[in-house]
């Protein structure tokens, strides 16, 4: 067994184990750090496979992303520090079955599939070829991803902002009726609101 094989085995085990621990730990902040460990292990495997740029990009991206996630955990969760036992699941058995079936089906494809044995050439520079592809033939794909990210930013700000340019974000909105044209299930004060700042507690 070579050195690379050993590192791969360790990183693969870390990636799978910490991925599994994400859904077993009591603390949600700890869960996001387990997810970060899983991503870093996958990044190391990418480096071993020769995808230098992607592995390093994964490190940076996930470090920031998991910090944001931990922050949201502290904001929203009742039990961010894991002081109490926590298990918030539904359809647990079905989900576990689906996960196991997905694993075995995909593994069967990996084991019994007939993939062409065409490894990347040893003199290939992955960063140079990726850069030439991104700003060459596949520029449209790359730029589409950029424009999609911009649209996401605008949509996210619109969706999460308190109020728009002309008033509250939910001003004049009415929940859908229980039956077509009927009354909504919850009829709050959509009739009685005559301007001013209301704080809705539903």
């Amino acid at each position: 067994m070579s050195f690379v094989d050993l590192i791969f085995l360790i990183c693969g085990a870390i990636a799978i184990f910490s991925g599994w621990r994400v859904f077993c730990t009591d603390s949600m902040v700890r869960a996001s750090f387990f997810l970060l460990i899983s991503f870093i292990a996958v990044g190391v495997i990418m480096l071993l496979l020769g995808a230098v740029y992607l592995g390093v990009a994964l490190f940076f991206m996930m470090a920031v992303e998991m910090m944001v996630m931990a922050l949201f955990m502290v904001m929203f969760m009742m039990n961010p520090a894991g002081l109490n036992p926590m298990k918030m699941v539904h359809q647990d058995k079905f989900a576990a079955l689906a996960g196991v079936v997905a694993f075995f089906a995909l593994s069967a494809v990996a084991v019994f599939g007939d993939f062409p044995d065409q490894p990347r050439p040893s003199d290939l520079d992955p960063v140079v070829t990726l850069g030439k592809e991104l700003l060459g033939d596949s520029m449209l794909v790359f730029e589409s991803a950029g424009v999609t990210l911009l649209a996401t930013m605008i949509g996210v700000v619109a969706m999460s902002s308190h109020r728009g340019r002309y008033g509250d974000a939910n001003a004049g909105s009415r929940p859908p009726g229980l039956e077509p044209g009927g009354m909504p299930a919850f009829s709050g004060d959509q009739e009685g609101s005559s301007g001013g700042h209301h704080h809705h507690h539903h």
């Binding site: 693969g12 899983s38 949201f72 955990m73 996960g99 196991v100 995909l106 593994s107 990996a110």
Partner: peptide
């Protein structure tokens, strides 16, 4: 084969989490 098996395990665990967790962030 080994790389794809590790990937399959990650996908399986993720599918379990996405289907079973009640909290949005999880």
């Amino acid at each position: 084969i080994t790389v794809q098996i590790v990937a399959a395990a990650l996908i399986g665990i993720g599918l379990y989490g996405a289907l079973s967790q009640q909290s949005f962030v999880m």
